[in-house]
Design a protein around this nucleic acid. Structure first.
Length: 437
RNA sequence: GUGGGCGUAGCUCAGUUGGUUAGAGCGCCAGGUUGUGGUCCUGGAGGCCGUGGGUUCAAAUCCCACCGCUCACCCCA
């Protein structure tokens, strides 16, 4: 054991999967690669281009972009100061992407910008199952279109990823928040209503009533939900334009056969959301059931200093929760890539030959493994077996003399002699045949 | 911040009413074959029993404190 271990709320991704102390399976690096590749493939098929922004951003960007009143800014930022600059490890990626869009005048590329990202984010929360201090998100931002088509395309792209990965039992919840002005009116009305029931509310709900009345809608307590039955509805405050937009989104989703349920109580935590809002849940997940969430954020650009409004819509999704859902579904994923050939050497002269030949085979594009410790042939064979190489080359004095390698096909145990001159061609053909089979 | 759970070998876990030198399975290394893997057999390495204190002739075991991990609440991806 080292003196050190990974920071609480972070985790190592190893070549092989393992089970952490919370009994959560941590996927192998090859599985992460596979899932990330699938995400990229689906999004690129939906005509998104990748954007990569720094993990480090100005604290003020997050404070203004995400919202001063949010939990993220209030108590969950990894922020520090260095030589007069305030840094924060990004807690999400939407504000950074909008920052980058504005900074680089990406609207000048022409048309609607469809961007996607994959990468780590950081929040200083209490970790638990499916929730970490360093976690990994992917998502998209569709910037420059206020049309309902953009909302629908965002949602459809999100759903396509979960479909491609074979995740069952997801539930898409949909709502509209309208404009910030109308929402303020609603918040005032909701506060007035809830204050008449203040005595019956729980401590947390009373605290929410103070700070952010919309959050009371999240309550899971039955008697509070009953109180909410009679509460004013956000939808009644939403303006005609917003309702028309919302209807168009719903119609487009229906055209695409995307199932959803409307949830008038779905409000999202971040200040920048307007109009359409949505969340994708998995029944299989437990406490952290949100797989992904998103919505429209037409005011964010101006909050970040843009003169002109920039309409935008996007979603963000959590990789860790995706893996939880994948585990629940028992979806198959790749394991560690195996070598095509293992080369075993016997004796010093053979070892030098093996080194040179390993390089030659690798240059020819083969995945080649060999011993690095001068171990016995038996040990080298065991190693070849453990690494599951389909072919093993055995090279000793006999082979050097004959200028022909012993090629062992591990599955059958059959051995053949292949002249050194033909090795690259022979092995490449064998491996190709195997790959095709 | 508030509750619950858990800390014994690389991993999964036994360890009796406190009682010699702390165990098993898997994994790892080596040998059985001085040129051959998987199956089998044999052997080996690997433990401050989370840390500190206390009780006791004697503590992995009982008591206290601390640390770490974890699940949940809050919030969210």
């Amino acid at each position: 054991m080292s003196t050190f271990q990974n920071i609480k709320g972070t985790f190592d991704i190893l070549p092989d999967p393992y089970t952490d102390d919370g009994d959560t399976r941590v996927a192998a690096s090859a599985e992460w690669r596979f899932v990330e590749a699938t995400v990229r493939e689906v999004l690129e098929r939906h005509n998104f281009d990748e954007i990569r922004t720094p993990v480090l951003e100005p604290t003020e960007l997050v404070a203004r972009g995400v919202g001063e009143a949010t939990d993220i800014v209030q108590k969950e930022m990894f922020a520090f100061e260095r030589s007069g600059t305030q840094y924060v490890l990004r807690p999400e990626v939407t504000a950074p992407v909008m920052r980058s869009f504005l900074q680089h005048h990406l609207d000048q590329r022409g048309g609607v910008q469809k961007l996607y990202y994959v990468g780590p984010c950081f929040r200083a929360e209490q970790p638990q199952k499916g929730r970490y201090r360093q976690f990994h998100q992917f998502g998209v931002e569709v910037i420059g279109a206020d049309d309902a088509r953009a909302d629908a395309e965002t949602i459809a792209s999100m759903m396509a990823i979960y479909e491609a990965l074979g995740i069952p039992e997801t539930r898409l919840r949909l709502n509209t928040l309208g404009t910030p002005e109308r929402r303020e009116e609603y918040v005032a009305a909701l506060r007035d209503y809830l204050q008449t029931y203040e005595d019956e509310l729980s401590d947390t709900s009373r605290r929410r009533l103070e700070r952010n009345p919309l959050r009371v809608l999240d309550t899971k307590l039955e008697h509070e939900q009953n109180i909410l039955q009679g509460a004013p509805q956000l939808i009644d405050f939403v303006g005609d334009d917003s309702l028309a937009h919302y209807d168009r989104v719903k119609r487009l989703l229906a055209d695409l056969d995307v199932d959803y349920e409307e949830d008038p109580f779905l409000v999202r935590g971040l200040d920048y959301y307007t109009e359409t809002t949505f969340e994708l849940e998995s029944a299989a997940l437990g406490a952290q059931s949100a797989l992904a969430g998103g919505g429209r954020y037409d005011r964010l650009a101006e909050v970040l200093g843009s003169d002109a409004p920039v309409p935008a819509v996007g979603f963000a999704a959590g990789m860790e929760r995706l893996f939880l859902a994948l585990d629940a579904a028992g979806t198959e994923r790749p394991s560690v890539p195996r070598p095509d050939v293992f080369i075993a050497a016997l004796g010093e002269a053979a070892e030098r030959w093996v080194f040179r030949t390993t390089q030659a085979l690798r240059d020819a594009g083969l995945h080649v493994a060999h011993d690095l410790k001068g171990r016995s042939l038996k040990a080298q064979m065991k190693e070849a077996n453990r690494q599951a190489a389909p072919y093993t080359l055995i090279i000793g004095d006999n082979e050097l003399e004959a200028e022909a390698a012993t090629v062992k096909e591990m599955a059958s145990g059959e051995q053949t002699e292949v002249p050194f001159a033909d090795l690259v061609e022979h092995l490449t053909a064998q491996v190709d045949a195997e790959g095709a089979a």
